[in-house]
Design a binder for these strands. Structure first.
Lengths: 159, 159
DNA sequence: CAATTAATTGATAAAAACTCTCACATTATA
DNA sequence: TATAATGTGAGAGTTTTTATCAATTAATTG
């Protein structure tokens, strides 16, 4: 935890940004909730618990800054809010998500299975891939059996 | 074109909805611009050209209705607006998109290459897949050569 | 160390994209 | 035809995010 904060501090100073108390509070909330995919509002409320004087705009600015420096990723699961997650330092690519259409849970697949497919895209479409996003929508193991007609769930979901 | 309109009319009446003039105008705009991924605002402006009396809310309602009936798909490419595309009648799944981070073009891959990967997800994660979304972000053949530092593009993009 | 400059912040206004409400119009049903 | 149900347009309201700007804090210069 402390090392990660220190590491982020260095990444910021490497680009002439400071790890201000507000930014540090925001980073710590993100680190403490790394499993979840927090929205800006979520982060704001959690940061406020410890630092009530912080402003919403500052949280947005910090998330944007971290995103610009590729320290975190912006995610959009089609529910109207942008969510944020740490970017694995070593990972070349974004990982994949499993979204349950019944309970809304978002699980992760950290393996990258798209290697061969990317090859095909690069050659067949002459497209230079920088990143990719792969999301599966369906029913998670927790909700299995609770859904009678899965086709019904597909309706007006976004993404 | 006319057949497709008729077909959609039947899909609507099958669910006790009518193909009103406003709905028909919206459907025709979508059909005439099937290549593009229009936003609700885009559709509204195009519909207005031919039927100036139509309201924005009606366009939103129609798109929502078509989406509920799985006649069209809602898409989100992370630019803050929901986009819409026809759903191939036969296709089990959504197709894939290639998004150019330089010019913003959205090309399509209509083949479904994820069969083997879906198998793994279903067994390894006990996740029943209903649909999936796969998007590659990178540089399209048109922009090849115009981008010096591709890594720079990755910054604060959403999705 | 004092003064100036720059970076950052909080509060709030504003923008953007939808969504809701409600009176009116159109269509279907009895 | 009367009555009920469905659909529409206009505009108000909501939600999420961005912009503005005065005030604070930190850094730099002399």
């Amino acid at each position: 935890m402390e090392e990660r904060v220190k590491q982020i501090k260095q990444q910021l100073s490497g680009h002439s940004y400071k790890l201000t108390p507000q930014r540090e509070a925001t980073v710590r909330v993100l680190l403490e909730n790394e499993q979840d995919h927090l929205s800006a509002e979520d982060v704001y409320l959690l940061v406020k618990d410890k630092s009530p004087e912080i402003g919403l705009a500052t949280v947005y600015r910090t998330l944007e800054l971290l995103s610009d420096l590729s320290i975190i990723h912006k995610l959009n699961f089609g529910d109207g809010v942008t969510r944020y997650e740490f970017r694995a330092e070593d990972a070349e690519h974004h990982h994949h998500h499993l979204i349950c259409l019944h309970c809304g849970a978002v699980d992760e697949i950290t393996d990258d299975w798209l290697g061969p497919i990317e090859k095909r895209v690069e050659t067949e479409f002459d497209f230079q891939i920088i990143d990719h996003r792969l999301t599966f929508h369906g029913i998670c193991y927790r909700c299995k059996g609770q859904v009678k007609d899965p086709k019904k769930l597909i309706g007006s979901k976004v993404t």
